[in-house]
Structures are given as C-alpha cells and as structure tokens.
Design a protein around this nucleic acid. Structure first.
Lengths: 229, 229
DNA sequence: TAGATTGTTAATCGATTAACAATC
DNA sequence: TAGATTGTTAATCGATTAACAATC
C-alpha cells in the first residue's frame, strides 16, 4: 500500500455500476484508482517490450493483483478484452489513461540538483507517464545554470513565475530532510497542489495540498517481514 | 498501495485475537504489516525531531490512516498507550520493531554506482531502519574501486562471495532497465531473497524471491487522479 | 477535578475470490 | 472444433469507522 499515504477521501463508496450510457460521474474508490495506476505501469513497460496482447493472468504475475480482481476492475468500464486472447496492450493503456484522466502532459518542478535530483531528471520513469520535469531548482548558488537532464538549474526566487507560466501542479523534493519543510512552504505558496517528498521530513501542508512521501525503507521492512515469517 | 506489489499471500486471515498469554504465532495480515511499517517510519522521524509522545491523532495526520484504525492495530499487541497522553515514541518504535521482527541489522547489496546508486548509498533512509549498504557493484570497470557512500565499488564477480560472507538478503537494483533482468538473475543465483527494483524492467524471478518495483510515477498518477476529480 | 486520549465494541461497507457460462 | 480467457455472479472475508466507556 504505498498509495495509502496519499491524503484523499474515498469517493461515493465502491464502484458505481456503469450503465453504458455515459461517463462515470463518481470518483473511483481509492483501491480501484491505485490498482489501475499499477496496471498502467506494467502495460506501459510491456508495450515498450513489444508485447501486443496481455492476459489478466500475466498482468497478475507482474502486479501481484489477483487476476479475477483485474478482470473485475476493467469490466466496470467496458469490455476491453477478447475471450481466449486477452487484452490489447495499446488500447488498454489508452482506456486506463482515459479512466484516470491522465492522458495529457503534466509538468513537474524538481527541487534539488544532487545525485537524487539528477537521477530523477534523467530517468524515463516519469516521462513514460506524461510527466515532464520542466524546471529544476537548487539553493546552492554554485549549481545555478548547470544542466540537469533536460532542464537548467534555476534560482528558487524564480519558482513562483515558473509555476505560473508552465502550469505546474506537481513539485518533487529531492533535498536534505532539513531543507524540505521550507521548500514545501514555497511550493505551496507558488500554487503547487501535489508534493512528492523524497526526504524523510514530516511535512506540514494545508489540507488542499497532497503530500506523498517516498518510503523505500518502509516497503523493505514490509517485504522483510514476510520473508522472515 | 505501494505495498501491494510485494508478492506475498495473506496469512491466516485477519488478526488473530491476542490472549495475552504468549506471542502471536500467525503472520500479520498484509494490511496490518503495511500499516505498522508506515507507523514505524513516522515514529522514527518523530523521534529524530525530539518528539517524546505522539497521539493516534497525530500519527493519523502523517500516515493518513484513520486514528481509530491505528489504535486498533496497536491494541492487538498490547496496551502501549497512556490515556489522555498518547504513545511514548521510543517505546512504540521498539514494540513495532519487535512485532515486525526487524529489530536487527540487515545487509544490502546495491547494484549501480550512478546518480541513483550514489543517492541511495549516502541516504539515511535505509540506515534509519537498520538497513546497511555493505556492498556496491557496477558493471563499468572504470567505477570499480570508487567510493560510494560508505562502500567501495566492486566487480560483479565478487557478488556471490560477498552475499555469503555478509549474509545479504536484500539486493537493490539501481541500474538501467536493459541491465536489470541479467543482474536480477545474478542476485537470485547468489541467494538474495528480496529484490528492490528501481528500474522499469518487468523482472522474472523464481517464486521464492520477492520483487518490489519502485514506482514513483504510479504514485503520482494516483495522486493526480484525486487532484483532478 | 476536567480535559484528553486510549482501548474496544458493534455495525457497516468494500475488497477479494472461486466458479463458471459465454465466446473468441 | 478445442483450448483459452474474458466477463460476471454470489458468497465470504477483512477493513473501516463511529461511538463511548475507561482512565490517565
């Protein structure tokens, strides 16, 4: 449940039945949205590897979600599969993107031009899902002007104008824990709505802002427990 | 559910009642183990910040788990709190570590001495939870001997002996997607039981090995959905 | 004492899954 | 056709939460 720490309330409760007459009006439940995101990740990679169709069983192996659950999740939105064959990877990617309303491009502001920041900026992981790092900031004046991935490091004072101009909704904090809260405050001031926190700081933000704290160690503790028992 | 993609089956189903007469014999359910890990992360950071007690309400704000749920989870193992006061941070950390059986030190082998590898090796995130990066490997001969965090980069051929000598159970892949499967195979051969995959590769491993694929983009897609709706 | 917060109950709600008919 | 896999049902099981007495 690495999704669990996103601050959101569940929708109307469960998946409303789709009468096939129009788009769903209600929000997806937390669980469905989380699983659809995961399917999307695997499908995106499967497509890269040249796979054209995929069965719910295969998807299950990679996502560790029960195959019945996968078919059930998908069938709530339409009949996307072919019996005896499976799902077309390309079309399923489009369908899920439509459902998650994340078909477009989304711009990201990245804080921190250290090792982690550089790794993030030059990775495909975000790019594959339509997230583009359009601005990198660092508090070290010596780093300003440096090239990090596709972007140039800027001064923090430019934050507000960049967020406005580039329509940035997501801010990523790849900075030391001690600096995280101060920069989170600046991101909030500038109008960012989602903060992705790679530091260990326990961030305080207004209720309209969502913080997601990355926690590899937590995932590891969890995996280790099931290995040890 | 960033925990959801760890390949594990649920235990006996739900939390067995604790009669107070001895240790629980059954495995925790997936959900409980995931939440306890998360509490531990927040508590660890709260302790670093000098906090001595914490209420279920405060824990709830940082973990986004309902405060009743938190009290319920904890009370299944003992009466750790003080009414009117909250939980002692130090002692709750110890208790949860005991429950998760992760009180000791655990050694990690890290693959990849690029930006991401360096970021991981020099971060506190793993160290705070008793994970120690004891060996770093890279396929680039030019990097061998380089210092990365507390470790020196070694040749992949040393992997098996290092895993044996250092009793390594966890391998972290911070390598390009194209190289991930080959290195995962080597980790499996060497006897590693948990693979933490930071690449996008869809790894194939034997059933006794657990793969956890890091997926920041998935988490972001999920957060974005709830922002957009 | 008065306020705060835990521990616990009881009820509800959603997630999960086995099974199988439909059908490609 | 025969095999495979979807779509869907029905039943079960676990998670979630409001409420409140206990008590620090």
């Amino acid at each position: 449940m690495s999704f669990g720490d996103v601050a959101t309330k569940a929708g109307g409760g469960g998946l409303p039945p789709n009468d096939g007459l129009g788009p769903l009006s209600d929000r997806l439940s937390l669980g469905v949205a989380a699983r659809l995101s995961r399917y999307l990740q695997v499908l995106t990679q499967a497509r890269k590897m040249g796979k054209e169709t995929i069965s719910s069983q295969e998807l299950s192996e990679y996502t560790h979600v029960n195959s019945t659950q996968i078919r059930r999740d998908l069938s709530g939105f339409g009949k996307f599969g072919k019996r005896g064959v499976g799902y077309n990877v390309d079309s399923l990617v489009s369908q899920i993107r439509k459902i998650l309303r994340t078909s477009g491009q989304h711009n990201i502001a990245l804080f921190g031009a250290g090792h982690l920041g550089k790794a993030i900026a030059s990775s495909d992981i975000f790019a594959d899902h339509g997230f583009r790092v359009v601005a990198v900031f660092d508090q070290d004046p010596g780093k300003i002007g440096e090239q990090v991935g596709p972007a140039t490091v800027r001064h923090v004072d430019d934050l507000r104008s960049v967020v406005d101009e580039e329509d940035i909704v997501v801010g990523v904090l790849a900075v030391p824990t001690a600096a995280a809260q101060e920069l989170a405050d600046k991101l909030v001031d500038a109008g960012v709505k989602i903060i992705f926190n790679y530091s260990e700081a326990l961030l305080q933000v207004p209720p309209e802002v969502t913080v997601h704290t990355s926690s590899p160690a937590v995932d590891l503790l969890y995996a280790l427990y099931f290995y040890l028992t």
